[in-house]
Write a protein that binds this DNA or RNA. Structure first.
Ligand SMILES: [Zn+2]
Length: 367
DNA sequence: CGTGCCGGGTG
DNA sequence: CACCCGGCACG
């Protein structure tokens, strides 16, 4: 509150460059302190520590995609007061980690979160063919795997590992022949991660129906070519012209000299199976269309912002068995883009965009 | 354990 | 408003 207004000499260090000593000290001290206290049994641990079996307790996100929320949950008989706990959730409910046959059925009865029909299918299939669903159930969980898909205009190949995809991009598109991993991260801009869920069940009993793998497309689409760099470009521009333009290594967007026709260096997201955000979309069906739906002022709301805000909507395909309210507290996708901080590093903090300096959403590298 | 950013402070 | 930072999600 008052007093201790030390560490201030930061920012605006235009006059100098190397006298970071003071700040340095500060930081290191702080860091130390942190390390010392590091093991605070506070709370967040719980969240992260769940093993893998039960996704544990409920606590939805604030709003349900379906429109109704807690009420339905409550009615299912399990918790009654939950929904308001947007954050953590009642520690009770150690259910189902131990398994209990009929439990399952109960769960199914409550629609709760998403209004997906997919679920239905699955579950039908489930006890339809299985007389002892439970057992199976237990070991089968939503098992999402990550694949890497090339986002180069025409090519949409999918690989299993980063290495593969990177090599692919490097050789096939960037025109390099370096066989090993010796390059900047440029490749990163030409592929995207897709998350596919594979439940053991499907794997095991592959008879299902078309077990069509995630080889989906419709990635790149239109807009990418039309409107992309938008303000990154212009920001950078003015950055360059206005300031020293000295040695800022630049984010690494330049292309290989060999290629004249630069494709789109952006990371397109959502292979369609990607993350799970799909909150009520009432308007985002059009590519780059006018998205004038901001209830408040705020001319342009970054995707991030909303992600962060509504970040929670449950994915469509989570395991039926793992409790209806297995939820997942605010899930935040976290853009895959490297921001000022990462790029320039702590030591060049003065090169960060202002927002980054203030620990706000980066304005230079929007995602 | 680092990174990104919200929320909430202060001048 | 600019500026900073605690704290927390996420990977
Ligand atoms: Zn930034």
């Amino acid at each position: 509150m008052f007093g201790c207004s030390h560490h201030r000499e930061r920012q605006k260090t235009d006059d100098l460059d190397e006298l970071d000593d003071v700040e340095m000290v500060d930081e290191s001290v702080a860091a130390m302190a942190l390390t010392n206290l590091s093991c605070s049994p506070a709370s967040p641990l719980l969240a992260t520590s769940f093993p893998d079996r039960d996704l544990l307790m409920g606590s939805h996100s604030y709003r349900d995609n379906c429109g109704h929320l807690s009420s339905s949950v409550a009615s299912s008989g399990f918790y009654s007061g939950v929904s308001e706990g947007n954050d953590r959730s009642p520690p009770m409910n150690t259910h189902l980690s131990e398994s209990a046959p009929e439990r399952l059925l109960n769960f199914e009865a409550s629609p709760t979160d998403d209004c997906l029909d997919l679920e239905e299918d699955v579950k039908h299939y489930y006890y339809d063919d299985d007389s002892t669903p439970l057992r199976k159930k237990q070991r089968s969980q939503v098992h999402t795997e990550i694949r890497y898909q090339c986002t180069w205009p025409k090519c949409k190949t999918i690989y299993n590992t980063v290495n593969d995809i990177e090599r692919h991009v490097r050789t096939a598109h960037l025109g390099r022949d370096s066989d090993s991993e010796l390059s900047d991260d440029e490749e990163e801009f030409y592929f995207t991660e897709v998350e596919v869920n594979i439940d053991n069940v499907t794997e095991k009993f592959s008879y299902m129906t078309t077990s069509s793998p995630p080889s989906n497309l419709q990635l790149i689409d239109p807009k990418s070519l039309g409107v992309f760099d938008h303000d990154y470009q212009r920001k950078e521009h003015r950055h360059n012209s206005s300031s020293q333009a000295s040695s800022v290594p630049s984010p690494g967007f330049h292309m290989n000299p060999g290629m004249s026709s630069t494709p789109i260096p952006i990371k397109v997201i959502e292979g369609n199976v990607k993350r799970s955000l799909s909150w009520q979309n009432s308007q985002n069906s059009s590519p780059n269309a006018l998205s004038i739906s901001s209830p408040i002022r705020s001319n342009r709301l970054s995707p991030q912002a909303r992600l962060q805000q509504h970040q929670a909507q449950s994915p469509k395909s989570h395991l039926f068995s793992s409790s209806p309210k297995s939820n997942a507290m605010h899930r935040k996708p976290r853009s895959e883009v490297r921001k000022c901080r990462k790029i320039y590093g702590m030591e060049n903090r003065d090169q960060w965009c202002t927002q980054c300096k203030w620990k706000k959403a980066c304005s230079r590298f929007q995602d």
